[in-house]
Amino acid sequence: MNKVLLIDDDVELTTLLQEYLAEEGYDVATDTDGRAAIAAAAGNSVDIIVLDIMMPRMNGIEVLQRIRKLSQVPVLMLTARGDDVDRISGLNLGADDYVPKPCSPGELAARLRAILRRASQSVVGTSTDTLKAGRLVMHPGNRTAEWLGEPLELTGTEFSLLEVLARNAGQLVSKQDISKRAFGKPLTPFDRRIDVHISSVRQKLGLREDGQSWIQSVRGQGYQLLLD
Rank of each mutant, 00 (worst) to 15 (best):
L227S: 07
S160T: 09
S160L: 07
D8M: 01
D86G: 10
L112D: 00
E153S: 15
R192I: 12
I115A: 00
E163G: 06
E12S: 14
V11R: 05
V63D: 06
D210G: 09
R202V: 07
S217A: 14
D177V: 14
D191Q: 13
N2M: 12
G222K: 09
I67C: 13
S160K: 04
P151M: 01
R193K: 14
S160R: 04
R208L: 10
L16A: 02
L225V: 04
G184H: 03
D84E: 14
G60K: 01
V196I: 15
I53V: 15
D47Q: 08
Q176G: 08
E209N: 13
Q121T: 09
H139C: 07
H139S: 09
E158F: 00
G43D: 12
L6H: 01
I7W: 02
F190P: 03
L187C: 12
S89G: 09
A166Y: 02
K204D: 02
T144H: 08
G34D: 03
D84P: 03
H197Q: 05
R57V: 15
I178K: 01
D84F: 10
V73K: 04
D47R: 06
E158R: 00
V85F: 13
T144E: 11
G170S: 06
S160D: 13
T30M: 08
Y20A: 07
D210K: 06
Y98S: 06
M1K: 09
E62P: 03
S160W: 05
R181L: 15
L17Y: 01
I53S: 05
R66G: 07
E23F: 14
R117F: 10
D195A: 15
M138F: 11
P74T: 04
D228F: 15
Q65K: 15
L112E: 00
T128D: 14
A42D: 07
L227A: 06
L13F: 13
D52W: 01
F183C: 02
P189F: 09
N142M: 12
D195H: 14
S104D: 12
V46H: 02
I61D: 02
V173I: 06
R135F: 04
G94V: 04
I48A: 11
D86R: 08
A40E: 03
R66W: 08
L93V: 05
E153N: 13
E209V: 14
H139L: 11
L154N: 00
L64F: 09
A22Q: 15
K101L: 14
Q212T: 15
L6E: 00
D33M: 14
K101E: 13
V4L: 02
L93Y: 02
R81I: 11
T14Y: 04
G125L: 12
N59T: 08
G170K: 03
L152F: 10
D83V: 11
L93K: 05
G134R: 07
G60V: 03
R143Y: 10
R208E: 07
K185D: 07
I198G: 00
R181N: 11
V28E: 05
R167S: 07
L172V: 06
A169S: 05
L227R: 08
D195E: 15
V73E: 05
F183D: 00
Q176L: 04
I88Y: 10
L207G: 10
L21G: 01
G170M: 05
A39I: 12
